[in-house]
């Protein structure tokens, strides 16, 4: 017997024009809708009843959004490119090996065959109290993310607070994309616009993306870094073959300057930069950036690793990423 989903209407547009019409019809009819790309994160939410749309719009039929191409010194990645294709694409492996590696670190081989890069940067924030079966969830009072009135991590939280929900940001590909200064093309009711990926992410675990209802990401654009740049992504998980990151660290070194991007440690990704001129020596610079990263991390007990362990692993993983970059260079 399988977990049952609440009933919804299903649509599978085959062109962006059809999609626009469909979205506008749903809007006019006052019907709540959800988009599904690969569906590997949406379907568990439908099964555990944390998401209950009137209408599910499957994006799988939009073949035009599945491509990777090089334009000048930039790579354009269609948002429906699967993580498997991204990790194994010659252009990505050649120009952005760290992105191929990060895509390969997402979930399992079967999920990467289905899940998309657009879905991965949009993956909903997670918390141990909400992302579980409905039966288990019923052991607790419903939290804010489940339309309830309590946060089980921050008991003093109340409606009206700046940050209501502490659900973690868990995309594996976002840190490397942010370190590469990725931009995204977003199609909405008023046409297509472009924005920095960094501007997509908001501070609250529930209202965690800056897109309007009905917006979809059509492409991700990434500049090819110069030869003096190297990147690496390191991830801590319980089960390497499957799990979301308990913490993920992207490291970028460009001509001595170091940048670090974090995932899994706060409601949104963290991004920090340090230039060698501002510090006495390299070790001081790394100590500084590690301290900043640890400061940023809000490690509540919402993961299978104890909170202090996760926090203390941040500098370890930053240094591990740097070591890998230095080792690869020499």
């Amino acid at each position: 017997m399988s977990l049952l989903m609440q009933n919804f209407d299903y649509h599978r547009p085959t062109s962006l024009e059809d999609l626009t019409v469909l979205v506008s019809d749903c809007r006019k009819g006052g019907r709540a809708f959800a988009f599904s790309a690969g569906g590997t994160d949406i379907i568990p939410q439908l099964k555990s009843d944390t998401l209950h749309p009137d209408c599910l719009i499957s994006l799988g039929g939009l073949k035009d959004l599945n491509h990777i191409e090089k334009r000048g010194n930039r790579l354009i990645i269609g948002s429906l490119t699967t993580l498997h294709d991204l990790a194994n694409n010659d252009l990505i492996r050649g120009y952005l090996p760290a992105l191929a590696h990060a895509a390969h670190k997402v979930a399992s081989p079967q999920i990467r065959n289905r899940a998309t890069i657009g879905g991965n940067i949009m993956v909903d924030n997670r918390c141990i109290y909400i992302n579980q079966s409905e039966i288990n969830r019923e052991c607790h009072a419903p939290c804010f993310k489940a339309d309830g009135d309590v946060c089980h991590l921050v008991k003093s939280a109340k409606r009206g607070d700046d940050i209501l929900c502490q659900a973690r940001f868990v995309s594996d590909t976002a840190p490397i994309l942010l370190l590469l200064g990725a931009r995204i093309a977003v199609m909405g009711a008023n046409g297509t616009r472009e924005m920095a990926l960094n501007d997509l992410y908001l501070r609250d675990g529930i209202d965690n993306r800056s897109l309007e209802v009905g917006d979809i990401i059509t492409a991700i654009e990434v500049g090819i870094p110069e030869n003096d740049t190297a990147l690496h992504y390191e991830k801590l998980t319980i089960r390497n073959a499957l799990d979301f990151p308990s913490l993920g660290v992207g490291v970028r070194v460009t001509d001595g300057a170091v940048s670090v991007a974090l995932t899994g440690l706060n409601t949104l990704p963290g991004l920090f930069h340090a230039k060698p001129g501002d510090f006495d020596n390299f070790d001081d610079m790394i100590d500084h950036i590690c301290a900043e990263a640890m400061d940023f991390a809000k490690t509540y007990n919402q993961d299978f690793f104890p909170r202090h362990y996760r926090k203390n692993m941040i500098p370890v993983f930053i240094r591990r990423g740097l070591d890998k970059i230095i080792k690869d260079k020499s």
Partner: peptide
């Protein structure tokens, strides 16, 4: 059907020649 939530891999089938989890995929998809 093992876990029905994408964790155990029991429901793997090939779709378009690639292994995928049939519990994480709508039939219509």
């Amino acid at each position: 059907n093992g876990c029905d939530s994408g964790e155990c891999g029991c429901c793997t089938v090939m779709v378009g020649g690639k292994p995928m989890l049939s519990c994480l995929m709508l039939a219509l998809d």
